[in-house]
Design a binder for these strands. Structure first.
Lengths: 169, 169
DNA sequence: AAAGTAAGTCAGCCTCGTTGACATTCCAAG
DNA sequence: CTTGGAATGTCAACGAGGCTGACTTACTTT
């Protein structure tokens, strides 16, 4: 598995030489890996007639309980109309509670119910198990590199959202 | 960016200790990075009323010209009915040509037309540019680690498809 | 030739994106 | 105050691209 070769650039700085073939393998790896990444939660969600969109909402509500719809929107990068359908389903199934804001009553603050927390735990345990196994197979140095490449691959605004979330962990 | 710590397991082997927090950061990084990964091609595709599914088909037809529908199916992991709709659009737009098999006339062999090749080049150049930039930011060691983790994250059967493609590059 | 299998197509459903129209609430200017 | 605009969230309807089921066509096996 070649990962490119450091060569001297004309300006003197070190440059990474990458063939189109190496890049394409990276692209395909990303595509196939993402399928594995979502496979386990998808199976669990299908049992209870929910989809990946519900998982994402549950994940980030769990991450920041009491978040508003608008805030969740900017994390997920979808339209509010799209998120709304997902949230409605989650509320109807008793997995999420939506409370009118105390100071600003236009806002809705979102929380996982008991049942929502249980589902979240199930989903994220499945996903973490795969991630843990991949990390162990690949080793600690690989993991650091993995993270570095992923962060470099994000779009600038997405990277900002990611960092904000990470920093307040 | 911590990537876990090597500790001695009871049996004496080395084990990677990973907190749930570390794993969750990896999960979020994967999610946000995948959005960046698809963003550039998506923009180009939207201009001509095509979607990600068309990109995938174009990518793998370009990779293995003359491939059959069935073969493409097993690479993409979708149903033939779903792929069929996508292929029909591509043929109608003159991007893909579907030729009846010479030896077995049930089969359809798929090829990119001139226009299809041009679009493929545009899409994959955009995607490679981002990948190249991410690789350069992260450095060669990071790239090797990135690839190792991704491969370990694939499901077994997907990994097989990926390897087969890679080996005959 | 008849039965079975494989490849592809047509029809119709569901999820989850999208845009448009709207109700509610807040706030700042008059 | 009040009133006009901005912010927040909801309802409706459309489209892409997954899915299953039923089918046709073409090849293979007996």
């Amino acid at each position: 598995m070649s990962s490119g070769r450091a060569v001297q650039s004309p300006g003197g700085g070190e440059l990474l030489f990458l063939t189109d073939e190496q890049l394409r393998q990276g692209i395909e790896a990303m595509y196939f890996a993402y399928r594995g990444f979502t496979a386990d939660p998808d199976r669990i969600l299908a049992e209870i007639d929910l989809g990946r969109a519900h998982h994402r909402a549950i994940h980030f509500i769990n991450r920041a309980p009491g978040t508003t719809v608008n805030n969740l929107l900017s994390i997920l990068g979808v339209t509010k109309q799209s998120l709304n359908r997902v949230l409605r389903a989650l509320v109807e199934q008793g997995l999420v509670e939506s409370r009118v804001g105390a100071t600003d009553r236009r806002e809705r603050h979102l929380y996982l119910t008991e049942a929502g927390q249980e589902l979240e735990a199930r989903l994220s345990e499945a996903q973490r198990a795969r991630m843990r196994s991949a990390y162990r197979d690949a080793g600690p140095d690989a993991v650091a590199g993995f993270r570095r490449v992923l962060e470099a691959m994000m779009s600038a605004d997405t990277h900002r959202v990611y960092s904000t979330l990470k920093d307040r962990a």
